[in-house]
Write a protein that binds this DNA or RNA. Structure first.
Lengths: 251, 251
DNA sequence: CATTAATGTGTTATTATGACGCAATGTACT
DNA sequence: AGTACATTGCGTCATAATAACACATTAATG
């Protein structure tokens, strides 16, 4: 696939790439979708190059889909990374030899790449990791247990999480991250996981319900230890409305 | 200058540029630093290309300085723009002929450019617009009276202002935008201009002073009509502290 | 010296927040 | 069956933040 791109490098934006931070929520844990790069024996964010005939927002969808099979998610640009040395150890001579890439064509790869970061919150259960190449492994990794990543992907991931934490104060989240029916404690765990701090149960309930995006269902969660919590769903219309207008006015 | 870049295009990141939104405050109005492009007879944001040996954040400073002479400002990346057609009418054949650029070299320019947007808030009085080339005109333009801009620069400017409006709810601003001594009504005008809405004088005073970043001076503004307002200055230490920790916790 | 258009200070009602208490529920254990 | 236990649901209270507004103060102006 990389060779395809090199053979047709006129069709791709030079010196530019896209990397995606895909976040899901499962077992009360925040998960990140990562790809195992066999040759480097490291993990990486799903990323790739930008076709010259696609808007970068479109290219982000293309890239994500081609690497993981994931489709139909809303990707949000959050930052662009371009330190001088960010990829000068990535496609070195050894690697190019290993990949059987001629030195001349390799130049397209060895120069500094600037990468545009996109992130998405997705429904864990609906995403079936599905690698493009057979040498690649796509997996959900607990965000607390993310191993060493290639390049500056750790920095990109951290920046995405920082952005998400700020978003949390401006927008409601959860619609894409939780199943259709969920409990308040589950939603609270999501918030606590992202913010990395404990919240008061009772105050959380009051605040989250006051936003007016939740519908209390006449149904309780079954097969749980202790008292069965009530099930809720998002009121899509109100949710969208709050997304548009934001949460805290501030001024 | 453009020819210099083309003759040494190996030294610049291909297909990538930086554009800067420089905002100042004067006469109770928000001003934008713009460059008049004579050949296009349009105005543009100060922008340019990225040296391959510079981090993009550094390149932003370089670019701004080379176009306007402005130095020593804190530039903040806010978004990256990459629609397919964003610059396909900019360096067309006619323009390349006008600039006496050979068709082969021109290819470096005619492809789609992705641009990284940076913005800064600066002290209007300390910035003396100082064009790099004699064919260029650098000027402060009232943000309400910005004329037609080249490419998607209007979109970039709008996005910068949107970002600033959000920042306003998370961070204190004004340190770079106002002179050392200023009045509360002046600060309020700044907020009102950015937010494009009226605020209540008395509530504004209470809220802004509660943040704890202002020092009330034992001095009044002179030569003003009506009652002379008190002068204030920012408490730099506390200001920096709030910048670090943010304003509204939210959760 | 009254007029005018600002600024400075204070009040009040309402709402949001943080820190809790306590009863209800369903599982697990004896 | 009965009790302990962890967790949920609902409520209280003091405090802080917010929005809307009233009134006195100040300085230039004619």
């Amino acid at each position: 696939m990389l060779k395809d791109i090199l053979d047709n490098n006129e069709n791709y934006q030079p010196g530019l790439s896209i990397d995606c931070v895909i976040l899901g929520f499962h077992d009360n844990q925040l998960k990140v979708l990562l790809i195992k790069v066999e040759r480097a024996n490291k993990w990486s964010l799903p990323g790739g190059f930008i076709p010259v005939d696609q808007d970068i927002d479109t290219a982000a969808i293309t890239v994500l889909n081609s690497r993981t099979g994931v489709d139909g998610v809303f990707l949000r640009q959050f930052a662009t990374f371009g330190k001088v040395n960010r990829n000068n150890q990535h496609f070195d001579k050894k690697t190019l030899e290993y990949l059987q890439i001629e030195e001349e064509k390799g130049k397209w790869l060895t120069r500094r790449f600037v990468t545009i970061g996109y992130y998405a919150l997705v429904d864990f259960s609906k995403i079936l990791p599905n690698p493009a190449g057979k040498l690649e492994l796509v997996e959900w990794i607990d965000h607390k247990e993310v191993p060493e990543l290639i390049l500056d992907h750790r920095e990109i991931l951290d920046k995405a999480l920082d952005t998400l934490r700020i978003e949390l104060n401006l927008m409601p989240i959860g619609y894409n991250l939780l199943p259709e029916k969920f409990t308040i404690p589950e939603l609270q765990k999501l918030y606590e996981t992202i913010l990395d701090k404990k919240l008061d149960r009772r105050n959380f309930l009051r605040k989250i319900t006051n936003i007016g995006i939740l519908t209390k269902l006449d149904e309780k969660k079954s097969n749980v230890a202790h008292k069965a919590p009530n099930l809720y769903s998002f009121d899509k219309d109100k949710y969208e409305e709050v997304l548009k207008n934001g949460l805290n006015q501030g001024w």
